[in-house]
């Protein structure tokens, strides 16, 4: 075991010096006046409020189902896009359904249904008109 060198004494003195400086600085922190403490308090609460305004990590995850639904809809649209003739058929079908609903909901059409002399001729005519307007499929 070697005896402590001259550096050991220097280190000990440096340690003492640091301890003394630390004690003094900590004492000066304790003596910070009320005005400064009050301002720091206000600043702290403002910062905490600022942090709580930000949406949390988990809250951002709560938007995942909506994002997934939108992504799925976009994916379906992209898959259907190349088959444009199928897309046209779907659009045509939707268009006809809307037309039928329009006829059923129309007040004049309801009068025609209630007219016993008509006997549903209006609807037969409407179906014929619809079929005659349908583009030929070549069948």
């Amino acid at each position: 075991m070697s005896p402590p060198g001259p550096g050991a004494h220097t280190e000990e003195m440096a340690g003492e010096f640091e301890q003394r400086a630390r004690a003094l600085l900590e004492d000066s922190v304790l003596r910070i006046d009320g005005r400064v403490r009050s301002h720091l308090n206000q600043a702290r609460y403002a910062a905490v409020e600022e942090a709580s305004r930000r949406p949390s990590f988990w809250r951002r995850f709560s938007l995942m189902p909506v994002a997934s639904a939108v992504a799925a809809a976009v994916l379906v649209a992209l898959v259907l896009w190349p088959h444009s003739h199928q897309g046209d058929a779907i659009i045509e079908s939707v268009h006809r359904t809307v037309e039928d609903l329009d006829l059923l909901a129309d007040g004049v059409a309801l009068d025609l249904v209630s007219d016993e002399t008509d006997g549903g001729a209006f609807y037969e005519w409407a179906v014929e008109q619809s079929d005659s307007n349908e583009p030929s499929t070549g069948a």
């Binding site: 206000q42 609460y45 905490v48 930000r54 949390s56 990590f57």
Partner: peptide
């Protein structure tokens, strides 16, 4: 412009509720 001293942050903001336990513990 800061909030008055000694008042905890309020949950006045509709977007985020401080009752959320994660936010509360983080705050």
């Amino acid at each position: 412009t800061l909030a008055p001293p000694y008042s905890m942050p309020s949950a006045s903001n509709g977007d985020v509720e401080l009752s959320d336990s994660t936010t509360n513990s983080q705050s």
